[in-house]
């Protein structure tokens, strides 16, 4: 094998990223066949529990049948509407630190043990003051049984798992899940190194 090239170092998106993205509508995915509209919303907090006013949230997820729009997801028998990208971008609000993504609940995708993962959405958070992206995952509070068996969640210390569970707001229509993201503190969000 030839010598590997060195990775280009990460840098912050800085304070002016919103001139490039997200673009209008990037935080609203279409409802594909078989999908049910859900909303994910929350606030991003820094170590002083001040809201972060300029964070970029990117999400990546499977469609309602549990298939990704990606050439490596070769499961032709699982339906895929090609207009489904599965990718959303949002920016936190300058005044409140809140973000909002309108999407659909993802289906279950394979894990590495011949089973299926609990429904989840991958999240990348970046912002001014962040020299590297952080990766986390959104799971759903109304999927307790699937969450209990999930390959990735099982590797998180039990006391910290709650930081990965988006909480369904009772009576919300469309179903709205609250998912705050916290840097530092007793309830710091779990971040992953994949």
């Amino acid at each position: 094998m030839s010598p590997r090239l060195g990775q280009t170092p990460s840098q912050t998106v800085g304070p002016y990223v919103s001139m490039a993205f997200p673009r209008e509508g990037d935080n609203v995915l279409p409802v594909p066949d078989g999908g049910e509209r859900i909303v994910i919303t929350g606030v991003v907090y820094d170590g002083d529990r001040n809201h972060i006013e300029d964070a970029v949230i990117e999400t990546w997820q499977a469609n309602p049948y549990g298939r990704y729009n990606h050439p490596d997801d070769t499961r032709e028998e699982v339906p895929l509407d090609p207009t489904w990208t599965g990718f959303a971008r949002a920016m936190t609000d300058f005044e409140t630190g809140a973000y909002r993504i309108e999407t659909v609940k993802p289906g279950r995708v394979p894990d590495l043990e011949g089973d299926f993962q609990a429904p989840h959405i991958a999240v990348i958070v970046q912002g001014r003051g962040m020299l590297n992206p952080v990766f986390t995952r959104i799971y759903f509070s109304d999927e307790e049984e699937a969450n209990a068996d999930d390959l990735v969640l099982r590797q998180v210390p039990e006391a910290r798992r709650h930081t990965l569970i988006a909480q369904l707001e009772p009576g919300s229509d469309p179903k709205t899940y609250r998912f705050d993201i916290r840097f530092q503190g007793d309830d710091e969000t779990v971040f992953f190194d994949f």
Partner: peptide
């Protein structure tokens, strides 16, 4: 104030 204090949890990448 915008950096995590815990190391990220190392997990084998899935699909």
């Amino acid at each position: 104030k915008r950096s995590p204090t815990h190391d990220p949890i190392k997990v084998v990448a899935t699909l």
